[in-house]
């Protein structure tokens, strides 16, 4: 039995957890938004999780506060119920990262010796932080960080790159100048509310739109990823291009969540066991 505790809405992530569990032969319960639950009465995360841990075998939590998943994991520890972080504020979104990694490996055949471009809101984009952090464990990745100066990657993420073996980064403003060097281009949404002025938003938003014309400068085997939902940062005319990998990412998202839930419930899926023994080269 899976419990999905979604304190903020995320259709895609929640549905992939729930359908994944049902496909594994289990069941799923939970809430989405805090309107109908006791959370709206001010219950702490720890109390809610301790309660739910009495009903469920595994918990997936999405919460706007950073570190909420750690609080939940500790609260459920005594009951022996594993907690999966389904996104905590601007901090981490590790299951999205698993989907990203599965997609990169599907497209590139490896998770090391890659030039990975990340483009858009790199400051608040948690999928970006999780992906960089995780790729650093494999090593030999060159990150090309494309963002406006106001939305650069936080220092702690840059520190992580510096620490990882064979990893390096460059920070640039323009996508056009670097797109030809990339194996992977990870696009993210530039969110309007992050900007100080409307003018600035409009100017930067249009800098980071990927369309067929811009894609023409990219390598024929580059993979375009996006955590979705998108607004306008990838034009729909890119969807038909074989380099578009973002709908593969959606499918992989459910598969990796199935594998993860099966693994934490000590019933690993056949075919995923061997992966576990692979030690990332850049592991610190």
């Amino acid at each position: 039995m899976l419990a999905t505790l979604f304190y903020e809405p995320s259709t895609r992530t929640r549905l992939s957890f729930e359908t994944g569990m049902i496909r594994l032969g289990g069941n799923a319960v939970g809430f989405a938004g805090t309107g109908q639950s006791s959370v709206s009465k001010g219950e702490s995360i720890a109390d809610t999780v301790r309660t739910v841990a009495a009903y469920a075998d595994v918990i997936a939590i999405r919460h706007p506060k950073e570190g909420a998943a750690l609080v939940a994991a500790r609260a459920a520890e005594r009951a022996g119920v594993p907690v999966i972080n389904a996104g905590d504020g601007g901090h981490m979104h590790p299951t999205q990262t698993l989907a990203d990694l599965a997609t990169i490996r599907q497209r590139c055949g490896r998770l090391t010796d890659l030039t990975v471009g990340l483009c858009g809101d790199l400051m608040f984009g948690r999928t970006v932080h999780s992906l960089i952090e995780t790729l650093c464990r494999w090593g030999n990745i060159h990150f090309v960080l494309v963002s406006p100066p106001e939305l650069r990657v936080p220092q702690y993420v840059l520190d992580r790159i510096d620490k990882a073996s064979g990893c390096s980064y460059e920070q640039v403003r323009d996508l056009a100048g670097v797109i030809g060097s990339l194996d992977v281009l990870y696009m993210t949404r530039v969110q309007k509310e992050r900007f100080f002025s409307e003018d600035e938003y409009v100017r930067l938003r249009d800098t980071y739109v990927l369309d067929r014309a811009r894609l023409a400068a990219a390598r024929p085997d580059m993979a375009v990823l996006h955590p979705l939902p998108r607004v306008n940062e990838i034009a729909t005319d890119v969807d038909a291009d074989p380099r578009a990998a973002y709908f593969d990412q959606v499918a992989n998202g459910m598969l990796v969540r199935m594998a993860l839930m099966a693994a934490v419930l000590d019933d690993p899926l056949p075919g995923y066991g061997d992966e576990k023994r692979q030690t990332p080269a850049g592991e610190q």
Partner: peptide, 21 residues
């Protein structure tokens, strides 16, 4: 002091910091 941090809203939580290596 991060306004988005769970320590600001969850009751009874210790403020724990670890040293950057």
């Amino acid at each position: 002091v991060n306004p988005r941090c769970v320590t600001g809203s969850e009751r009874g939580l210790d403020h724990v910091f670890y040293r950057v290596p």
